[in-house]
Computed example of a mutant assay.
Amino acid sequence: MNTDICSMHIVLAAATSFEIQPTIDLLTNGSAPGGHTTDVLITGIGSLSTVYALMRQIGRRKPDIVIQAGIAGCFTPGRIGAVLAVKEEVLGDLGVKEGQDFKTVFDLHLVDRDVPPFHNGLLINPHNNLLNLTGLDQVRGITINEISTDKDRIDWYQQNMSPVVESMEGGALHFTCLQEGIPFLQLRSVSNDIGQRDKSRWDIRSAIAHLNQQLMETIKKI
Rank of each mutant, 00 (worst) to 15 (best):
I222E: 05
N128V: 09
S200D: 13
T218M: 05
T218Q: 09
D25P: 06
G195W: 11
N2Y: 06
S47A: 15
I67Y: 11
V83D: 09
R140D: 02
Q100Y: 08
F184M: 13
I80G: 01
E169G: 00
R61W: 07
Q158T: 04
L122F: 07
V86Q: 08
A13V: 03
R188A: 02
G73P: 04
N29G: 14
M161E: 12
D112E: 11
L48R: 12
H9W: 00
T134D: 07
A53F: 11
Q159R: 14
H210P: 01
G30L: 04
P183W: 13
M161K: 11
V51T: 15
I20W: 02
A13H: 06
L133A: 08
V139I: 05
R188P: 01
T134K: 13
P117R: 08
T23I: 13
V105M: 14
I20M: 02
Q68G: 07
R197W: 04
G141P: 04
I42G: 14
H119R: 15
S148R: 03
T218Y: 06
I42M: 08
R61P: 03
I71Y: 03
M55D: 15
S17W: 00
T143R: 08
V190Y: 09
G99A: 10
D112H: 11
G44L: 03
G35H: 05
L84M: 07
T50R: 00
I222F: 04
M55F: 09
V83Q: 02
V11E: 03
W156V: 00
M168V: 07
D137P: 03
A72C: 12
T3L: 15
V96M: 15
V139N: 01
V190G: 05
P116R: 14
K97P: 03
Y52S: 13
S49I: 03
N212G: 04
W202E: 04
S7R: 00
N132S: 11
F75A: 06
F118H: 00
N192G: 03
I144G: 01
L187I: 11
K87M: 10
G44N: 07
P116W: 09
W202R: 04
L94M: 13
R153T: 14
G92P: 02
L91E: 06
C6E: 14
P33H: 13
K87V: 09
M1S: 14
M161L: 15
I71A: 10
T149I: 08
R113W: 05
A82T: 15
S17C: 11
N160W: 06
V165S: 08
S162A: 13
K220C: 07
R61M: 08
F118E: 01
I58L: 00
G95N: 10
G135M: 12
T134C: 12
F102A: 00
I222Q: 01
S167H: 11
R188Y: 01
Q158V: 05
G78Y: 06
Q196L: 12
M161Q: 10
Q57Y: 09
T16A: 11
V96S: 12
